[in-house]
């Protein structure tokens, strides 16, 4: 019974989330859009740091590159923003190759600092791009956004303004990205490569001795998460509508909050970021009126979790109950013996 209950509950939650633009207020849709995007970023960062051991604090580079890639497609080449999303993601992935080439020479804390430096270089580089507003940034043409495919159909469905339809579309895309990321992460971690990655995490020397190439696997994860992060960056800025180097390459918004979400939820577990983002959203709602106190409380909670519950909320839950929602393990085949009942 219990085994059936949970998938049913999850399915209901997804249906409810999908129906939200039809039944909920626009403010809630906008709020949850941001939460879903943070979850996409958190799922990506969890793959990087939690499974591949690549603790990057420069993922905002790929958010910014993805977003600017999308803006360039729309403003400079008159493309559809949704096509721009995909191209932005691909550009982020392409640029992750040289980034990996340089930063993979560094380990641990040095790697973290290296990625941070790269993100700042990207921010400074982009602010020289005069066609996209240089250091002050630019806005996405309203017409381009409101002519995205499906907008009219969504208007007919939810019966609001064009702007509300844009919010609904971006919200659904964010929800789809979350689902895609969850399924893709799970499939990847259960595959041969995922098994190799977990072996590398446990013992890189032994992994090499049984034929697993740590650098190749880590590079693959770095590339794929750059793609996921880049697409999410593009999506974020379709909805926000305005871009500047400081906003697109924000360490606080796109990496610090994301690290907080993953750490409190449970690094190295798949449901961890989902739990983390729920806590984060709850705290945000609770403390939204207190300004900087909010950040101080977030920081204190993060420190407390790191000190007293190192595997985060979900990790602690697995330790206590021994039950995991999305187990990554491969069970040994059961021996077939005639004495089996």
């Amino acid at each position: 019974m219990r085994k059936m209950l949970l998938p049913v509950l999850l399915l209901l939650a997804v249906i409810l989330l999908a129906a939200l633009p039809v039944i909920g207020s626009r403010a809630l849709v906008q709020d949850l859009f941001m939460v879903l995007c943070l979850l996409v970023l958190a799922l990506n960062w969890n793959m990087l740091a939690g499974f591949a051991g690549l603790v990057s604090v420069g993922q905002q580079a790929f958010v910014g590159i993805g977003a600017y890639g999308m803006f360039a497609c729309v403003i400079l080449w008159g493309m559809d923003p949704l096509a721009g999303l995909l191209i932005g993601g691909l550009v982020a992935m392409a640029l992750s190759v040289p980034v990996a080439f340089f930063t993979f020479r560094l380990n641990g804390a040095y790697f973290a600092i290296g990625t941070w430096a790269v993100a700042d270089i990207a921010r400074l580089g982009i602010s020289q791009w005069k066609a996209l507003g240089g250091g002050t940034g630019t806005a996405l043409p309203k017409a381009a956004v409101q002519e995205m495919p499906g907008i009219e159909a969504i208007r007919a469905l939810i019966g609001g303004s064009k702007a509300a339809a844009v919010d609904a579309l971006t919200y659904w895309l964010a929800l789809a990205l979350v689902m895609a990321m969850l399924v893709a992460s799970w499939a990847f971690l259960r595959s041969r490569m995922g098994l190799g990655l977990q072996a590398v995490r446990d013992n890189p020397v032994a992994a090499r001795s049984v034929g697993v190439d740590p650098v190749r696997l880590k590079a693959l994860v770095f590339l794929l998460t750059a793609f996921g992060t880049g697409i999410c960056g593009g999506l974020l800025f379709i909805q926000i509508g305005r871009i500047s180097p400081d906003a697109a390459f924000s360490l606080l918004d796109w990496t610090a909050f994301v690290i907080f979400i993953v750490v409190i939820g449970g690094i190295g577990t798949l449901p961890g970021p989902v739990v983390g983002v729920l806590v984060f959203y709850g705290l945000q709602r609770l403390l939204a009126d207190y300004g900087t106190v909010y950040l101080i409380v977030l920081g204190l909670i993060g420190i407390a979790i790191m000190l007293f519950a190192r595997r985060g909320l979900w990790g602690g839950f697995i330790e206590r109950t021994g039950w995991d929602l999305l187990p990554l393990s491969h069970a040994a085949p059961r021996p077939i013996t005639p004495t089996d009942p």
Binding site: R192, L195, Q198, N203, V205, A206, V212
Partner: peptide
């Protein structure tokens, strides 16, 4: 040098699938 968080069976599975 076992892969400590993996099961005994998975330790072998990694080696069989890769090496």
């Amino acid at each position: 040098q076992p892969f400590g968080h993996l099961s005994v069976y998975e330790n072998l599975l990694v080696a069989a699938r890769f090496g």
